[in-house]
Computed example of a mutant assay.
Amino acid sequence: MRFEGAIVREQGIVFAIVVVKRHILDNNAEATRVAHSFQPAFPGLPVVLMAQNHRGAATYFGRPDIARFLSRVPVSAIPWREYTLN
């Protein structure tokens, strides 16, 4: 499976971000399951999910401190790339 994501190192914390469809974030249990499913691609890192609405505004799901930090970062400033998870 190919997906868009990023590894970010900021303020002494390293974490991963994965782009998902908006509806995933509407259900906490589903979002938790999906975040956990990406753990093999980012072993040992906290995984935060990101979805955008129709206007491009981002919403994050994951560790509250990381999600709060990301809410103040422009999406274009994140070092996105394509990953593969088998």
Rank of each mutant, 00 (worst) to 15 (best):
M1F: 12
M1Q: 15
R2Q: 15
F3G: 11
E4I: 06
E4A: 08
G5S: 03
A6D: 02
A6Q: 04
I7V: 15
I7S: 04
E10T: 14
E10G: 06
E10F: 15
Q11L: 14
Q11R: 13
Q11M: 13
I13W: 11
I13V: 15
V14A: 13
F15L: 07
A16S: 07
I17D: 04
V19R: 08
V19T: 11
V20G: 00
V20M: 00
K21G: 07
K21H: 04
K21L: 01
K21D: 08
R22G: 10
R22A: 12
I24S: 04
L25Q: 10
L25Y: 05
D26R: 15
N27F: 12
N28M: 01
N28Y: 08
A31D: 02
A31K: 03
R33A: 11
A35C: 05
A35H: 01
A35N: 03
H36R: 09
H36V: 03
S37H: 09
P40Y: 10
P40I: 05
P40R: 08
A41M: 10
F42H: 14
P43Q: 02
P43G: 02
L49K: 01
M50E: 12
M50D: 01
Q52L: 06
N53H: 01
G56V: 10
T59W: 00
T59V: 12
Y60K: 10
Y60A: 10
Y60I: 07
F61H: 06
F61V: 04
G62D: 01
R63W: 08
R63P: 10
D65L: 06
I66D: 13
A67K: 04
A67Q: 00
A67M: 02
A67V: 06
F69D: 15
L70C: 14
L70M: 15
V73R: 12
P74S: 14
V75K: 10
V75E: 07
S76P: 00
A77M: 10
A77V: 07
A77S: 15
A77Q: 14
I78Y: 09
P79W: 01
P79D: 00
P79K: 01
R81S: 07
R81H: 11
E82G: 12
T84Q: 14
T84H: 08
L85V: 11
N86W: 06
